[in-house]
Simulated assay, not measured.
Amino acid sequence: MRVTLLYASAPRTVHEVELDLPDGATARDAVRAAGWPQRYPDTASPDEALSLAVWGRRCEPDQALRDGDRLELLRGLRVDPKVARRERFAGQGARGAGLFSKRRPNSKAGY
């Protein structure tokens, strides 16, 4: 059974390993077979455990894998995406982004 293991240690940096595992192997077995620790060394704190996902859907370490699965190690978010978007929007201004950036002359707001 072939499985691809991915981890993005930093922005624009992705580590990818192709693994040959026995049938019935779990996500935990795949991480161990790659030689990567469950807690990757460059996480924010040593207590922060990484999450696992198969094709972008979260899974438990004891979930069985299938041939061709793509297993991903997920880091925690550093910034809440909603807060980051609000801050970007405040910096651009209400009329500098999105639907309201280009208005037809003499039209109502949002058109």
Rank of each mutant, 00 (worst) to 15 (best):
M1K: 05
R2P: 13
R2G: 00
V3T: 08
T4Q: 06
T4E: 10
L5R: 02
L6A: 09
Y7H: 15
Y7S: 08
Y7C: 01
S9W: 05
S9C: 12
S9H: 09
S9F: 10
A10L: 12
T13I: 14
T13H: 14
V14K: 03
H15L: 12
H15C: 06
E16N: 10
D20T: 13
D20Q: 11
P22K: 10
D23Q: 15
D23L: 09
G24M: 13
G24H: 11
G24N: 12
G24Y: 12
T26Q: 08
A27T: 13
A30E: 14
V31T: 15
R32F: 13
A33L: 13
A34G: 14
A34Y: 09
G35L: 06
G35F: 03
W36Q: 09
P37Q: 07
Y40M: 14
T43L: 09
T43Q: 11
A44Y: 08
D47T: 15
E48W: 11
A49P: 08
L50Q: 12
L50P: 10
S51D: 12
S51Y: 11
S51R: 15
S51I: 03
L52S: 13
L52D: 06
A53L: 10
W55F: 10
W55Q: 13
G56I: 07
R57D: 11
R57I: 09
E60N: 09
P61S: 10
P61T: 10
P61D: 12
D62Q: 15
D62S: 13
D62K: 12
D62L: 06
L65T: 05
G68V: 01
D69V: 03
D69F: 02
D69R: 02
R70P: 00
R70Y: 03
L71A: 08
L71S: 06
E72W: 07
E72A: 05
L73A: 07
L73H: 00
G76I: 11
G76L: 14
G76W: 07
R78V: 01
V79R: 12
D80T: 04
P81Y: 04
P81D: 00
V83F: 01
A84M: 04
A84S: 04
A84Q: 01
R85V: 00
R85A: 05
R85Y: 00
R86Y: 01
R88P: 04
R88Q: 04
F89P: 03
F89L: 02
A90N: 07
A90Q: 02
G91P: 05
G91C: 04
Q92T: 02
G93H: 05
G93F: 00
G93L: 01
A94M: 00
A94T: 02
A94N: 00
A94V: 01
R95T: 00
R95S: 08
A97Y: 13
G98T: 06
L99D: 03
L99G: 00
F100R: 13
F100Y: 14
S101H: 12
K102Y: 00
R103E: 07
R103F: 03
R103W: 00
R103P: 01
P105N: 07
N106W: 07
N106H: 10
S107E: 06
S107Q: 11
K108W: 05
K108G: 13
A109T: 13
A109F: 11
Y111Q: 07
Y111G: 01
